[in-house]
Amino acid sequence: MTPTHPTRRQLILGAAAAVGSAWALPGRAQDSSDIVVGQSAPLSGPVAVAFQGALAGERLAFEEINRKGGINGRRIRLVLLDDAYDTQRTVENVRQLVEQEKVVALTGLGSTAGVAAILPYIAEKRMPLVGVYTGAHVLRLRPHPTMFTTQASFKDEVEHQLRTLVTLKMDKVGVAFQDNEFGKLMMPVVEATAKELGATLVASAPLAVDGSTSAQAVGTIAQARPQAVLLIAVGPSVVGFVKAAKAGLNVPIYTLSVAASAVPALGGDARGLAMTQIVPFPWRQVHPMARDFNREAAAADVAVNYNSYGGYLGARFLIEALRRSAPAITSDNLIRTIQGIRNFDLGGIQLNFSPTNHHGTNWVEITIVGPDGKFMR
């Protein structure tokens, strides 16, 4: 997720949320008619900054609908708890949200391990989880009765990258992968997808999470003379590899959407980096939702970027599902409602669900980092 430079307003909201918060339209007391939605998110810890944009985007959407009178006169109240990106805290938070806060739905969980850990519990409780901030393919391998995704998976991103390279006759590909659970889970996905599409993986090299082995990884891959490189990493390892590649590997580098957090730290070295995106271009105000988002962001002093737009769109879909479930908004009814949604236009992405398909889209596009770190389509 792309980190944003938080505005003063975001810092105030983040400080209030760090110990857990119940949020709704300012100036009104909570009441029993509220539609209560729950979220466990890393408000502190190693990835807290990267989540600020998405959380700010969600708030824009909920504030917007509440300002307009909510759903049939009922406002949406988001109960937001900090999990510090810790699996056990995520499990505890979800139990609190379901059993004490009596939420009608969960939304916006961000940790792959955390989501995996709560799936049996929410299935037992028939609690819908609408939208997650992890693209892990492993969470999508088997149908889950109450989890719904509104963004493409990491596998979808890799497939789009490799399909593009094969089309461009650049099918000899090197892979640099982060030497942790994320990278190791992704390598079998990359290998299987390359075989399926007819690409040849000529070399692969692990990357230390802190980027300290970047020069060695670049050297290993360069010896195989690839036509392009897939970089399966986030954070400092992206920065280290791209900087090292400028001197020792003169081929295009393709990264996943989650690597966007490294663009500011790369500075001018980010120019030319190819990056898949799973959210439409937020600066092109052709779609009504993009116009709504940009208007709300400007009024609230929220930075416009892929993260904040992704959070806004995810919340807009949840709001639409709640609206279609009215007047009897229950967890079971919400599940049935989402399973019946077809061809819903979410900012330019078509979402389709059914009782056997809970993953609404595999939409991906490739952007290029241009001058001054700006994305170009």
Rank of each mutant, 00 (worst) to 15 (best):
K68F: 03
A113T: 14
Q161S: 14
R77N: 04
G73P: 06
G108Q: 14
R163E: 14
R163H: 13
T107D: 06
T90W: 13
A136M: 01
H137N: 12
E99H: 01
E63Y: 08
A116D: 13
E101W: 02
A123Y: 05
R126N: 15
E92R: 11
D86L: 04
P120G: 03
T167N: 14
P120R: 03
I76G: 05
R89W: 07
R89K: 15
R67W: 00
V79P: 11
P145S: 13
V103A: 09
D86H: 12
E92D: 14
V98A: 12
Q100I: 00
V158P: 11
D83V: 03
H137D: 14
E159H: 13
L80P: 03
A152E: 08
H137G: 06
G69W: 02
E64P: 00
N93P: 04
S111C: 09
I71S: 04
T146A: 15
R77W: 04
P145H: 11
I76N: 02
A105E: 07
K169S: 14
G73N: 03
P143V: 09
Q88Y: 09
E157N: 05
K102Y: 01
N66K: 08
H160F: 15
G131V: 09
T112N: 09
E64W: 12
Q161K: 07
D82A: 10
L141G: 09
R140L: 13
R75D: 11
F154R: 04
F148S: 06
F62N: 00
E157S: 05
T146P: 10
R67S: 15
G69E: 03
Y85M: 13
A105Y: 11
S111R: 06
Y121S: 02
G73K: 07
N93H: 06
Y121V: 01
F148K: 05
K102W: 01
I122F: 10
I118C: 02
T164Q: 14
Q100P: 01
L97E: 02
A152M: 08
E99F: 01
P120D: 04
Q88P: 00
Y85R: 08
P128W: 02
H160D: 05
F62E: 00
I65Y: 04
E63T: 07
K169T: 12
E157T: 06
R95G: 13
N72L: 12
R140V: 02
Q100C: 01
E159Y: 11
D156I: 02
G131A: 09
E101V: 06
A116I: 01
V132N: 07
R67Y: 00
D156W: 09
Q161F: 06
D83H: 07
E159I: 01
Q151I: 12
A105H: 08
V103G: 09
A152W: 10
L162V: 15
P128I: 08
L129D: 05
Q161G: 06
Q88A: 15
A105F: 12
R95K: 15
K102C: 02
A113H: 12
T112I: 09
G135P: 09
Q151P: 00
D83T: 11
A84C: 08
G69R: 05
K169W: 00
V130D: 00
R163Y: 08
S153I: 03
I71R: 10
K125E: 12
L168V: 00
V132C: 01
I65T: 11
V79F: 12
A105M: 09
T112F: 10
T90F: 12
T107K: 14
D156N: 15
F148I: 03
L78N: 05
L162R: 13
G135D: 05
